[in-house]
Amino acid sequence: MSRAFILLLDSFGLGATPDAAKYGDAGANTFGHIASTVAKSGKTLTLPTMERLGLGAAAHLASGEWATGFEQRDGFTGAYGAARERSTGKDTQSGHWEIAGVPVEFDWGYFPRTTPSFPQDLTDKLKAISGVPGFLGDCHASGTDIINKHGDEHVATGKLIIYTSGDSVMQIAAHEASFGLERLYDVCEMAFKLVEPYNIGRVIARPFTGSNGSYTRTSNRHDYAVPPPAPTLLDHVKNAGGEVVGLGKISDIFATQGISRVVKGVDNMALFDALLKTADEVGDKSLTFVNFVDFDQAYGHRRNTEGYADALREMDARLPEFMAKLKPGDLVVITADHGCDPTWHGSDHTREHIPMIFFGPGVAPRALGISESFSDIGQTLAHHLGVAPLANGVNVL
């Protein structure tokens, strides 16, 4: 039996890439800075399961430095390395698509770091066709912050909260009860058609609940996304008769292309529970792809270093549960899609190496070095599953 699992820790970068200065990210290091910041507070970031697999050594390959508190130098149980992005930018879609064998060879459109961020013509057209009374925010922002800032006025007036980030994205937030979830989805579909001339990758519906300045985003997020421009690993697996299970926002990122089954979860641990259940269900030649989004949206963008550290500890503590479900022929990779250094300026992603840590019953522990494309991950999994090779990447195992 051959099964494959991608465990993507959204935004878990291992240090700036050689071209990071072009993005204003020279010196960024999500993992390294979390470890050193936690140490300065008198604590230690201990991730024993991932350290044994080779996380610390992979980070050393990427940054040239050993993360504070990570002392293991040999005896690793995984095949570990790091990868640099060939795609331009540091977007969610670009990172995921490149992992799946399709680097983004074009430039996305982005909304400027101004207030307002969105062109007047765009918001005028959206207001006219949607019938909403207006918009709040209209800037680069952290989603949780802007919802709490404008939530009361939104509920009172019906004006939508709109914002963007360093991604090629327009995000639209609304209260599930006062505005309505289906109505929010309808507006986002309208917006997705309107942003096409701007070459924007996604429009994200960001529903929330709560009252009186205390609001919480729900799991009913939905991304309206441009599909990958070429067949990905997901398509290759599905076309070969294998099941492709997308956990979390994977289906949205790939615009449902190549997905057999969608599983949602409200947070990292709900998704981990779903991963355990999926591992019991999927069969030969299956691909399970899970995005643990809290690292990015709840901690990276919010520049919450301690929260990010706690989430890493929580993930590491539960990994043995998943490992116990692995069968002969299973191959797992722990990776990321970009960085989001919580100690960095602003609230956007950072251009960093990503981890490339393979493990499973038949994986021989060794150092893999640094790959020049995220697509080496997808090509390795395609080879393992015996499906058609991808157009990009090399098998590193």
Results as ranks from 00 to 15, higher is better:
P229A: 13
F295T: 10
R302Y: 06
I259R: 02
G158D: 07
D19S: 03
G95Y: 02
F359W: 15
R318K: 15
P231H: 10
G201I: 03
D267K: 06
G27E: 09
G346D: 07
V104G: 10
R313F: 07
G248V: 06
G329R: 14
A230H: 03
P389I: 08
F295L: 14
M50D: 05
V244E: 01
A20N: 02
T335H: 07
T218Q: 14
P18V: 09
A100E: 05
P342S: 13
V38T: 04
S130N: 13
G248F: 01
D348I: 01
A67V: 00
F31Y: 10
F106G: 07
I370R: 12
A82V: 02
Y80V: 05
G75N: 13
R86N: 15
I204D: 04
N268I: 08
T68Q: 14
T37I: 12
Q257W: 04
I34L: 12
A26M: 09
T278Y: 12
P207E: 02
G15W: 03
L312W: 11
P389M: 04
S11C: 06
R217I: 00
G64Q: 15
K249I: 13
T380P: 00
L122T: 07
T115S: 06
G180K: 04
T305D: 08
I370Y: 06
P389G: 08
S373M: 12
E372R: 04
E281R: 12
K149G: 02
D124V: 04
V293R: 03
D25Y: 05
G42Q: 03
P328E: 14
F292H: 05
I99C: 00
K22P: 01
D310V: 06
A156W: 01
H96V: 09
W97I: 00
P328L: 11
D91E: 07
A274W: 06
V187W: 09
P355Y: 09
K285D: 14
D337F: 07
L181N: 07
A391Q: 14
G56Q: 01
G27C: 02
D19R: 09
F374D: 08
E372D: 10
H140I: 12
A230L: 11
R52T: 15
K127I: 07
A20W: 00
Y185W: 15
A225C: 14
K249F: 10
G75R: 15
Q257C: 05
L61N: 10
H222L: 13
F118E: 01
L331D: 06
M170G: 05
F70K: 02
A279K: 08
T115M: 03
D267R: 01
G329Y: 08
